[in-house]
Design a protein around this nucleic acid. Sequence first.
DNA 1: AACTCGGGGGA
DNA 2: TCCCCAGAGTT
Length: 346
Amino acid sequence: MSFNKILIRWYSNNKRHLPWRETTDPYKIWLSEIILQQTQVKQGLPYYEAFIKSFPSVFDLAKADENTVLKLWQGLGYYSRARNLHSAAKYVVNELNGVFPSNYKDLLKLKGVGDYTASAIASICFNENTAVVDGNVYRVLSRYFGISTPINTTKGVKEFKTLAQRVMDTRQPADYNQAIMEFGAIQCTPKNPDCSVCPFNNSCVALQKNVINELPVKLKAAKPKKKYFNFLVFISEDGKILLEKRVGKGIWQNLYQFPLIETPKKITLKRFESLVKEHPKLKNQSFELRLYNEEPIIHKLSHQHLHTTFYIVSVETLDNGIPKEKINAYPVPILIGNFIETFNFN
DNA sequence: AACTCGGGGGA
DNA sequence: TCCCCAGAGTT
């Protein structure tokens, strides 16, 4: 039996029952694919359910505030996905009368939809013969065919896309694409796959050459840079606090945080206190500064390690402060969210 | 082509 | 620790 037939048979016997597999509604498939970018099914599933509940259609999503969308996305990371999701929803509603693009080429025009996602939606919803290439596909193809071209190079990307398209089943694109991804997630796992029960254990090149754990080949990423974040948690006597929106480039765009002072390295409380005295909010009133966490919290991102210290700043009054009861309405990075959960604002 | 963008989980 | 996860956009 052929490679793709075996995959599709394996899929019909082993697939998980997931909510987005009960539909071919392009809105729901699109939403699921955006959520699942660089995200495991287990982590993304509750977010998918919450989004469908809050925004049953693309019209509901399009008319929401960005803050509401980001709040629902809070904790999932890669927040540009949420901003682009919202932007694309407005585009579909306002420019396309709410009708989703129905082919690969037009799907690519949606913000946040790249080669993978356009291929996934086109095949699953519209039966278009476009092969997906995600992390699972790289792993399955590199092992089965014994290909050691690094997957995170231009050459590798082109080579695997071409191969994926060539071996794809031409009559069942929806099932085939989902089959090879599911196979990578369940059977052909990154570490220690159980090849003894694999339907390809008599034809897999990597298994025959005993190089399963060497494939796929991936060039190493640079080491993350250290940054030093000092958050000022202002609290006024009448129970108001201060949040600011992150604008411009960098992480957490359009999310909220406490006023931040970034320093080149770890700073002592004494030096920080003299620095804080110059803060605009503190020019005209006395304040009390209290160190919240003695040991910095190290929040690890893909390319940065954030050495984080929170300072409680008690003041008399706060212009533009928000009532502390309303703090949970704002989308915040999980680093801030964890602090809010732990800290007692009474 | 290299870099940036999160957070969780497995070994 | 290091690597991976149904990748995309920017520089």
